[in-house]
Design a protein around this nucleic acid. Structure first.
Lengths: 190, 190
DNA sequence: TTGTTTACTTACTTGTAAGTAAGTATCTTT
DNA sequence: AAAGATACTTACTTACAAGTAAGTAAACAA
């Protein structure tokens, strides 16, 4: 990023992501964006010719942010507990802001997305699951975590707790997410 | 149900549910339904004046089916393990049919739903969580299940595993759901 | 200083979603 | 047999979403 990014383009991207996380992909329009930013409809099309270009960019952006976070934690030599904690904090922040996870927002819409968007979403899920698997595995080897079964399965379970945790919190009680978050950490204690 | 239900109405309800579970609420139209059923658009409006009436009926229907299942298991005196197993089987079936859970489909769309629909969705989540909590609690008391923490939190975690498990399976690998399902049961073993 | 690129706006087109009013055929009750 | 009620269809309206073609003003580069 940062190379050649107009302010307007960045604002569209940010607002687009926000709308996907709050209303859902098939419920927002370019008008929602243009009105909010005080620009014309066609200006949004100038940066993102079709809606599928916008979603795809939003997903790619999320992948980049995830990778930056991982890189950052690696260079700072975070231990496994701190890394998991940082990851959970991202979701806790979403919960406070009444947002859900991008995977959980676009997952149900998967069949309505363009092939390229699906590919990026897949890439994103795989990256997260692989990272989390490795984290759990090395944490267990060091005796920092304790759990039964495959690291990959455990990663799927923790991610699904987070993804649907945010969705359920939206429907039921915001504080339900906190219970889930605490229990994830509790369950991993040696 | 069954009192005063025209065949067309039932077909609309069934197809409407199917479309919500495969494409999402904001991605299907009354045309999708009328074309498929070989009727006119206005015929769908005859039974469900507005889209919000259709979704609300779909949710209410799901609540009824859930309650029938619970009643059925109670009269047949299913033990806690069998009841949980039956519940998991519903989700496994959805996974095979490439569908997701109604909660997981409408959860992300929650902010775009009418108040009455939201209320029904809330009712549905609360009913499921309360039932699952009690099931886990009494199963643990009998020594059939073993888990740490509050039954309510554990119920939230299992439900979120199932809800997002289906979503992740859609995006990644269908078999991921099976791993999650098996691990849920494994984790509860005494 | 002329030409090109950037960043838009103006002004459309096309398609579809949601919904409604009024009509009609058939069945059902009195 | 007449009067509802039921289950639709015909034929619209309104609104908005998505996208595009052509124009323009300013910046920037040759």
């Amino acid at each position: 990023m940062s190379i050649k990014m107009s302010l307007t383009r960045e604002k569209i991207l940010e607002l687009g992501e926000d709308l996907i996380l709050t209303k859902g992909y098939n419920a927002f329009s370019y008008q929602d964006i243009s009105k909010e930013l005080g620009i014309k409809n066609a200006a949004v099309h100038y940066y993102f010719p079709a809606k599928e270009n916008l979603v795809t960019s939003v997903v790619k952006n999320n992948i980049l942010r995830f990778e930056e976070m991982v890189d950052n934690m690696n260079t700072r030599m975070f231990d496994e507990i701190s890394q998991l904690d940082a990851f959970l904090k991202i979701y806790a922040k979403s919960n406070r802001e009444e947002k859900i996870c991008l995977l959980g927002s676009l997952g149900p819409d998967f069949n309505t997305l363009a092939e390229i968007t699906r590919k990026e979403l897949q890439k994103m899920s795989v990256k997260i699951i692989n990272w989390l698997s490795k984290l759990l595995n090395s944490g267990r080897k060091k005796g920092l975590f304790s759990f039964e079964g495959e690291p990959n399965t455990r990663a799927l379970m923790i991610l699904s707790n987070l993804v649907a945790g945010l969705q359920l919190a939206r429907m039921m009680d915001k504080s339900d997410f906190k219970s889930i978050q605490s229990q994830i950490l509790e369950d991993l204690k040696p």
